[in-house]
Design a protein around this nucleic acid. Structure first.
Lengths: 231, 231
DNA sequence: GTGGGGTCCGTACCTAGGTACGGAATCAAG
DNA sequence: CTTGATTCCGTACCTAGGTACGGACCCCAC
């Protein structure tokens, strides 16, 4: 019958550091055992090690220490019901799903920006920087346009987007490039577009279910520019 | 020609609080403008408001202030290349994808636990608590078994799992319940199982592509227990 | 009995991204 | 000229989850 472990051994048994146990004691996640009479060091019962492992296990599932505190209280409660635990797990699952959604929105926004970025050349041609830089006259629509909750519902799921690059003749200035960008960007099915005067090309990210290259080329050529190469 | 805005107006224009601007100044994300000669308050140029908006925009995409600092430096760098920006965006996208993966693993683990939880009754019957509580004899395999990187590859994607509950006759003790749990849990296609002696039932989460109810019932009945109800 | 390592305890520090407080000065309106 | 709102500036505080330091003890082996 072992009386217990010293803090160092308990820490190793629980897979944490000594300081972490002391921290958990301060947080009242584990009890600080009394020193056995006459002894100078505290002895931790197996129960403490078990609690530490419980904590680490719950952390893996995304629970915060505060939530774990509740779970531990529940565990010690003789009238606690399984539904209490289930409820907390469900709430945490919702929480996790919300975080995933948010990250997926961010990821989709980044993907779109990367897809249309020329990938070389000066920053004035960079569509990523362009998207980040506020432009006069479109102030304060940032929140709607940004990363979160992409407005276009066809963007949900992960519709397989296609990326096309067109070499264009006839661009005379950055203004022309902007014109083309605006036109193409307004086409149905187009998720993002960038047009570089310097490179003389347009990069378009679009949904092949909703439009096609022909239509995009037609849109570009309508005002009189010429598409001389497609990639 | 406006000389600039006071800090309060600049804050409103940028969609942040006054204290946030001061904080950004301390972080050297925006410059602190000099006080015009003889004046007691500083006047912020439109440029500062633009930087603040840039910061907020980039934050929406998941960039940290440290990373934003780099992006801003890049923006001011005359020889900076679009590929520098693209590289950072790609790295951030990888980062976001890793976080999504981790959360999806956690979510899948929570789903599995919730699916097999009886949802009522004492905690000794609760499979969630059970999963969190370390059991003697299985020490230190926590990291493999926990939430992260679920071993079974058929768990990837999101195969539509089915959940079934069986009322069982013939369970004489918790040991019987454990036996059934072990048997069912080892069946191919079974993602999780819990058996409660108290409730006289088993809950199983399984992949309907890999197995079916008949097979599960057969497994339970093989040692002599009787399935008297299915849900 | 004397090392050397472990423990005890309080306290400070860390990251990230801000928020809050408080006294003094300044500014704008009436 | 007064009043109320801002601004200025330094400093402290907040969440979350620990990590680190330092001096004093204590325990075990040789």
């Amino acid at each position: 019958m072992t009386a217990g472990l010293t803090i160092g051994k308990a820490a190793r048994a629980g897979g944490v550091g000594v300081e972490t146990i002391r921290f958990y004691e301060r947080q009242r996640l584990v009890a600080q055992p009394p020193k056995p009479m006459g002894a100078g060091v505290r002895l931790y019962p197996a129960d403490t090690v078990e609690r530490i492992r419980f904590i680490k296990e719950a952390q893996e599932l995304g629970f915060s220490l505060r939530e774990i505190h509740e779970l531990l209280a529940l565990r010690a409660d003789p009238v606690a019901d399984c539904s209490d635990v289930r409820e907390r797990a469900t709430a945490k699952l919702d929480d996790v799903r919300r975080k995933i959604q948010r990250l997926q929105d961010i990821g989709a926004a980044l993907e779109r920006l990367i897809a249309v970025c020329p990938g070389s050349g000066g920053l004035q041609a960079c569509s990523i920087m362009d998207a980040l830089t506020p432009h006069p006259g479109q102030a304060s629509r940032r929140r709607r346009d940004g990363a979160s909750s992409q407005s276009n519902p066809s963007d949900e799921g992960n519709a397989p987007m296609k990326n096309a690059t067109f070499k264009i003749e006839g661009l005379r200035c950055d203004g022309c490039a902007d014109t083309v960008k605006g036109l193409v960007g307004k086409e149905p099915g187009v998720k993002a577009a960038s047009v570089s005067f310097a490179d003389g090309e347009a990069r378009v990210l679009y949904d092949p279910q909703a439009t096609d290259e022909e239509r995009l080329v037609a849109t570009i050529q309508k005002p009189g520019f010429r598409v001389i190469e497609r990639r």
